[in-house]
């Protein structure tokens, strides 16, 4: 009887682990992986929002900035390059260089706008600047959310005992995103 129990108890424990813990751990990892994918998609959305904002900003300021053609052309080129890179095979990581160049160009434009009092008092330009600031914030927050999601996912997949599952079910590590997208920092 006791020998039977000695066999039965470990078998029951194993069954409980397989039936209860494995699906729960697997589902938890899938949920965290999907959060990473969702956060990554959010960055794309915000980058496209910035691409769409640039033409309005340029048309609002170019009348005042006839002597700043270099800055305007740089923004136009950077924006065209960023839009052109949208379908590139490297994904978001492959487009970091073009997006960083656009950030830098927009930083230069913002610095120039600050030195023109007429522009600083234009309600239309102020609104577009607010939109630009908000878009930069959204990109930074989306990146931050993505990296937080990556931390949570990678921590979950690397800690015991869930790390026993990752090899069998193909949970690859997620990558952090290193984008320097802040206009103010890139002046």
């Amino acid at each position: 009887m006791s020998a039977g129990l000695l066999v039965l108890v470990p078998v029951l424990l194993l069954v409980v682990v397989v039936v209860v813990w494995v699906p729960a751990a697997y589902n938890g990892l899938v949920r965290l992986r999907n959060e990473v994918a969702n956060a990554s998609g959010q960055i794309d959305t915000q980058l496209v929002r910035r691409h769409d904002l640039v033409p309005s900003l340029l048309s609002a300021v170019q009348g005042y900035l006839q002597h700043e053609r270099d800055v305007l052309d740089r923004v136009t080129r950077a924006r065209a390059a960023a839009v052109g890179a949208l379908g590139s095979p490297g994904g978001l990581v492959g487009r970091v260089a073009t997006e960083n160049e656009l950030s830098s160009a927009l930083g230069s434009l913002t610095a120039v706008v600050e030195s023109y009092p007429q522009l600083r008092s234009s309600a239309n330009v102020l609104r577009l600047q607010e939109d630009l600031v908000s878009t930069e914030n959204r990109i930074a927050f989306a990146r931050q959310h993505h990296n937080d999601a990556v931390t949570a996912y990678n921590t979950a997949r690397e800690t015991f005992p869930r790390n026993l599952l990752v090899g069998s079910f193909g949970f690859r590590p997620a990558e952090y995103l290193k984008l320097d997208l802040s206009v103010s920092d890139s002046r």
Binding site: Q46, S134, N137
Partner: peptide, 12 residues
């Protein structure tokens, strides 16, 4: 309105 949208992005 912008600020609320920004924080919503941050919180997902």
């Amino acid at each position: 309105l912008n600020v609320v949208a920004e924080i919503a992005v941050s919180a997902g």
